[in-house]
Simulated assay, not measured.
Amino acid sequence: MKQELRFERSEFTHRLDAVKKEMKARSLDVLLLSEPSNANYLTGYDAYSFYVPQMVVVALNHNEPVWIGRGQDGISASMTTYLSKNNIRPFPDVFVQSALSPYDFVAEIVKEICGERVRIGVEMGGYYYSARAHADLLKALPRASFTDADLLVNWIRLVKSPAEIALMREAGQIADAMMYRAIEIAAPGVRECDVAAAVYHQMMAGTPAFGGSYTCSPIYLCVGEKAIAPHAAWSDDPLEERTVVNLELFGNRHRYQVNLARTICIGSPSQKYQKLADVVVESLEAGLDAVIPGKTAEQVHAAFARNLAKHGYEKDSRLGYSLGLGYPPAVGEKTVSLRKGDQTVLRPGMCFHMMSGLWLENEGITITQPFVVTETGYEALTKIPRQLFIK
């Protein structure tokens, strides 16, 4: 059976050690991870199986994590993780979408490994940890104490290793290829859905050197009147002359994702709109120039906001967010945001999407930049010019 580990075993060991250190600091005996990205981070597990309950159990007294999931997905656990056979625990299909709870199965494994009187951390804010899941675990483990350990692993994931950054660079190359394909095909008369189709084809094809994968959310193709909406859906309408196309897309390489947005004008933009584009790019550059290790996320936001304010504009939403390893429905790590009040200190290896898009009352524009913090500043993860594209 071919193994598909994306990292050296030593890297997984380092990650697990960091998680256990934090568990000890919080007096946790067990950590139950429901988020697919955190399961992948600690074990390498990768399959589209998170539509049914699955867990990775991390116990202080157990050398390896334990993967728990649907029986037929056990083969993927064997193929994509380093875990020994005894630490891959698939549950029978009788637990799938039935009156029986798979969390009873999880509880029995927790009791086997650690006993019943344990302190358990769970991801209360996780996308894949439901109220029913929590209620079932409380019932099945009445002698255990539960605490919210949401984002424990996410904060550890914040600083990427060199091997992770290498995948982010490849994801950035895929994002560039996708955006160039969109710019190439966008023209009067071309349907919005055909632009989306071309972008999705490029997403999977990747580059001549390596392929891509499905992303953490659909692309956002916001055309015409919908350019003032950041997450609008595309239609099958043809593109018209003098139309604005705001496109946010995502390059994904082995679950590491880079977000990128650009605006394409079909036909010459008005002088006012071109000026708006120039202001956004100028402010984006000011924000990027402020990316220096030791500075805070708030200081980066302030540099962008000051420049924007000089021209009479204000951005209500956050300027950016950390990104990296992800699964649907979103890639954001839910940790650092580039905005006022976030005092997180930038460190080399952190990756962000500087989402400098503006959605105003009558017009919207999206010219953004993903980057990784370096020892001296930042490295752009995409190479496409930061400009308004005109077709």
Rank of each mutant, 00 (worst) to 15 (best):
R89Y: 08
V122A: 03
A182E: 04
R253Y: 04
F352K: 02
V331I: 12
Y45S: 09
F12Q: 00
G206F: 09
P370L: 00
M204G: 14
P348G: 06
L381R: 02
G294H: 06
L308N: 11
Y128M: 12
L16M: 02
W67F: 08
I390T: 09
V336I: 13
K20M: 10
L276F: 03
I384V: 10
P385N: 15
Y327T: 15
F352P: 07
N362C: 03
M23E: 02
R262Q: 05
S145G: 05
A99S: 13
M168L: 06
I120E: 01
V331F: 00
T376N: 13
Y180R: 15
R117S: 14
F304A: 10
R318F: 13
M55T: 14
I266V: 11
L308C: 07
E379P: 00
A39L: 15
T147Y: 01
P188I: 14
A309W: 09
K160H: 15
P385I: 11
L381F: 08
I384Y: 07
A196D: 15
A380S: 15
L323D: 02
G324R: 09
K2A: 12
L388E: 04
L284S: 01
A135D: 12
R347M: 00
L5Y: 10
R255P: 08
C216K: 04
F389L: 11
A286E: 03
A186L: 12
C265P: 05
G294W: 05
I109L: 11
L141G: 10
P208D: 00
T368K: 02
A277K: 03
A59R: 00
V52W: 13
R89P: 10
I68E: 02
P162I: 10
Q257M: 13
P36V: 03
A187M: 13
A131S: 15
A229P: 09
L100I: 10
K295N: 01
T215A: 03
A166L: 14
K340G: 11
Y128H: 15
